[in-house]
């Protein structure tokens, strides 16, 4: 589904990612871990198409298409979803209106008819239950006045609404209490299928108790330096990252 080859990314002349390779297939869950400032969030942003980052070398293909040539909104319409680390507030725009607009856009791109108002609201209600979001959400403005936990749940809710093929969750677990963490993780698990894939960026092994990854990657200095299964996450939790740095030096 997603192939990243020899990716190099700079921000204002400073290279953040240098020579990253990653392959994600349908049905897989990948976890990306690593110390702060090693380019994890940058990778998520580049896949989503954030223009603040400049891809200087390498390629990303998504379902056979050159992803780097697609505008941001087309990447979303092709099924890429980014769960933001810091979801932004959009005052005065209700969640209902926001989701309706987004869903209609995506459906139109796929040649589907827009949902009727009734069908849309019913669909929205179902998805809200999935992440145990309260009813009042509909009329609230996008992320405005949401608590940290609500914002993250809201990201998963949007993911449920848009049914992406490839979801990238950028530190969705940070700032969550244990109940919210469970809800978010359950949401992700319920949405999992043989046709979609998830990349989970996290600092903590805790999340991976709930979301069982097929692969755990360690990112360091702009590259994936080690890949393993979920036991690698446990090892990291226990020993930290220093031993990996040591290995690299050796």
């Amino acid at each position: 589904m997603l192939q990243i080859k020899n990716l190099h990314v700079s921000v204002q002349g400073k290279e953040i990612i240098n020579g990253l390779n990653l392959e994600v297939k349908a049905g897989e869950i990948h976890a990306i871990m690593g110390p702060n400032g090693t380019g994890k969030s940058t990778l998520a942003s580049v896949i989503a198409g954030n223009t603040n980052y400049e891809v200087t070398q390498g390629e990303i293909t998504y379902n056979g298409k050159n992803l780097l040539e697609l505008p941001i909104e087309d990447r979303a319409r092709e099924g890429i979803f980014l769960g933001f680390q810091y979801p932004v507030e959009i005052p005065g725009v209700s969640m209902t209106n926001f989701m309706r607009t987004a869903l209609d856009e995506i459906r139109q791109y796929r040649g589907q008819e827009p949902l009727s108002a009734g069908a849309f609201l019913k669909y929205m209600k179902e998805k809200k239950e999935l992440v145990e979001l309260q009813d009042k959400l509909n009329n609230r403005s996008v992320n405005e006045g949401f608590s940290g936990g609500e914002k993250k749940k809201n990201e998963i809710f949007q993911m449920a609404m848009l049914e992406p093929q490839l979801a990238i969750l950028d530190e969705t677990d940070s700032g969550l209490d244990i109940d919210a963490l469970r809800i978010v993780a359950q949401g992700v698990n319920k949405l999992k299928s043989a046709d979609n894939a998830t990349i989970v960026i996290t600092h903590y092994q805790r999340l991976l108790d709930y979301i069982i990854p097929d692969f755990v990657h360690v990112m360091y200095e702009g590259r994936i330096v080690k890949t393993g299964d979920k036991s690698l996450a446990l090892e990291l939790e226990e020993k930290g990252y220093d031993w990996i740095k040591e290995e690299l030096k050796a």
């Binding site: 954030n50 505008p71 941001i72 319409r77 959009i90 005052p91 725009v93 926001f98 987004a102």
Partner: peptide, 27 residues
């Protein structure tokens, strides 16, 4: 903000529509 626009676009909404949405929300 660029962040607001990026957020909308990441949900499949193009720039012009995103601006329309944000401005109408503002007003």
């Amino acid at each position: 903000s660029d962040e607001q626009l990026f957020y909308c676009m990441q949900r499949g909404i193009n720039t012009e529509k995103a601006i329309g949405l944000i401005v109408n929300g503002y007003a």
